[in-house]
Design a protein around this nucleic acid. Structure first.
Lengths: 240, 240
DNA sequence: CGTCGAATTGACTATTATCAAACTAAGTGG
DNA sequence: CCACTTAGTTTGATAATAGTCAATTCGACG
C-alpha cells in the first residue's frame, strides 16, 4: 500500500532534485528555486496498482511524479471507466477537482512509483515571497488543459491508426525530455489501457501494432517498442 | 470585426455585473469582490464568426464570456480541425497556451458576443492584495481540466447516442445555471459543429435528434430543443 | 420567388467492435 | 524442475456502428 515519507525539515528538496529541470520548478530563476525548496514536505511511495487518490476524497495536494508512472481515470455511474492520462516523472497529477475541493478522478500507480506531495496550503504560503510559483502552477494547469484538448482532437477526429501513431510519438517525445531514448522504450501500459485511453479496443491496438511492425514503421515485442520510421508515423498521425 | 471597448477607470465592473454569480468572481467574499473591480479594463465585442484570438498569437489575457457564445478549436497540420469547447456567458476562454505564452487554439464567436478582457498582468497585480483571486483562477482552470476530461470520457467510451444525449444534458445544466429553462432552449451551434465536437458526423447527429424525437425523448425543430424525458436521456448518457 | 446554407433522410460502405481461439511469458505449487 | 495456471497478447471470422455519398426538404433572406 501507499507509504508516506516525511522529509527532514529545512533540507532542500526541489533545488537539488534531479527532476527539477522537467518538473514544477522548470524555468524558475535560481533565486526563487531555493525559495520553493520547502514546498515538498512529504513523498508517497506506491506499489504497482496502489491508489494515490480516489474520486470523492478531499483534495489537499497536487502530486508530482518523481519515479515510475501513474494513470488517472474517470468512472461513470454505469461502471464504465476512461483513462484520462498517463503521467511520467516530472508530470503533475491531481489538477482536476479544485472547483469542489474534491478529487473527481482516481489516480493509480502503473508500476512501483514515488510522488512528491505539494500541499495547496503550502503553495499559497510560499508563493507570497516567491511570486513566480503561481505562474508555474498556472503554466502546469494550462499544459494539462492543452494536453487534454489535444487528446480530444485525437479521439474526435483521428482514425484508429492515426491515434495509435500519435500515441507512440507522444510517448517518445516525453521520454526524450526525460533523457531516455526517443526511439527505443518500454511501454508501461497494457494494450487494454492504451485502447481505453484512445477510445479503441485492445484488439484494435494490438492489430495496429502488428501492422505497423509488418510495414516496417516499428519493431514491437510485448511492451518493448522501437520506432523505426518517425516520419511515416508523423505522417499517419496528422502531424505530417 | 472585433471591437475593443475601454472601461472608465475606477468604475466598478465585476461587483456590479449581473454575471458575477456565475463568472470568475463567483463565491468570492464581499470584501475581495470590490478589490477585483479593476480587473476588467476592457471588453471586446464580436460579431458572429469573428475571431477572438488565433493559434500562435501571444497570450496576454483570459476572456470571460459576458454575452453570446464562443467556440474554441484546434487545427492540425493536415487541416483537420476539432472543436474543443463551446463557452457560454460566465465561462472563461483562453486557458490553454500559458506554457509557451501563446495561444494554441482559435476562439470564434458563434453569435454576436461580448467578452471581458482579463489581462494576466492585472491578475498578478491585483492578487497581491486579493489573494483569493489566485484561488479563483486555479478553480477555473481546474474546472476546464475536469470538463475536458469528461469530454474525453464521452469520446472514448460512449456510443453516438450516449454522446448526443450527454451533450443535450450538459447544455441544459449550463443554461439552467444562467437562469434559462433547462428543458427548452435554442442551440447556438450547427449540426456540423455538434458532430465535430462529439467526434461524429453531422448526419449521425441529425439522425439521433430525429430518433430521440420519434421516441418521445425530445422535441426538436431546427435548433430549438425541448427536453421531454430527462430521465431517459440520463439513462442513455450513462449518468443513469 | 429564387437562392443558399443547413438539416433531414435513404442506400450503401468502411471501420472498428465483438466473440472466439490459440499462443506467450511469467509465475506457482506439487 | 516441470506441469499448470493466469494474465496479457495476437489473430481470425463475423457483426454492428457510424461514415460516406446523394437526393430532397426546409427556412431565411434578399
Amino acid at each position: 500500500m501507499a507509504k508516506r515519507i516525511r522529509m527532514k525539515p529545512d533540507s532542500p528538496q526541489c533545488s537539488t532534485c534531479m527532476m527539477a529541470q522537467v518538473c514544477l520548478p522548470a524555468g524558475l530563476p535560481e533565486r526563487e528555486m531555493t525559495q520553493i525548496d520547502q514546498l515538498v514536505k512529504e513523498r508517497v511511495r506506491l506499489k504497482k496498482g496502489d491508489s494515490l487518490y480516489q474520486q470523492g476524497e478531499s483534495l489537499e495536494a497536487l502530486y508530482s511524479v518523481r519515479l515510475g508512472s501513474v494513470k488517472t481515470q474517470l468512472t461513470d455511474l454505469s461502471g464504465q471507466s476512461q483513462i484520462t492520462g498517463f503521467y511520467l516523472p516530472g508530470e503533475v497529477v491531481g489538477l482536476d477537482g479544485m472547483l469542489e475541493g474534491q478529487h473527481n478522478s482516481n489516480a493509480l500507480a502503473m508500476e512501483d512509483s514515488e510522488v512528491c506531495v505539494i500541499r495547496l496550503d503550502d503553495i499559497d504560503e510560499i508563493s507570497r515571497y516567491a511570486p513566480s510559483l503561481q505562474h508555474q502552477i498556472r503554466r502546469i494547469m494550462s499544459k494539462e488543459i492543452s494536453r487534454s484538448h489535444h487528446v480530444l482532437m485525437a479521439l474526435g477526429s483521428l482514425r484508429s491508426e492515426a491515434r495509435v501513431a500519435a500515441f507512440l510519438l507522444n510517448l517518445s517525445q516525453r521520454l526524450a525530455i526525460l533523457g531516455y531514448s526517443s526511439t527505443d522504450f518500454v511501454m508501461r501500459m497494457s494494450r487494454e489501457e492504451i485502447g481505453n485511453y484512445l477510445g479503441l479496443t485492445l484488439e484494435t491496438v494490438s492489430r495496429l501494432f502488428s501492422r505497423f511492425a509488418r510495414e516496417g514503421l516499428i519493431h514491437i515485442n510485448q511492451r518493448e517498442v522501437k520506432l523505426l520510421d518517425l516520419d511515416a508515423l508523423k505522417q499517419l498521425s496528422g502531424q505530417a
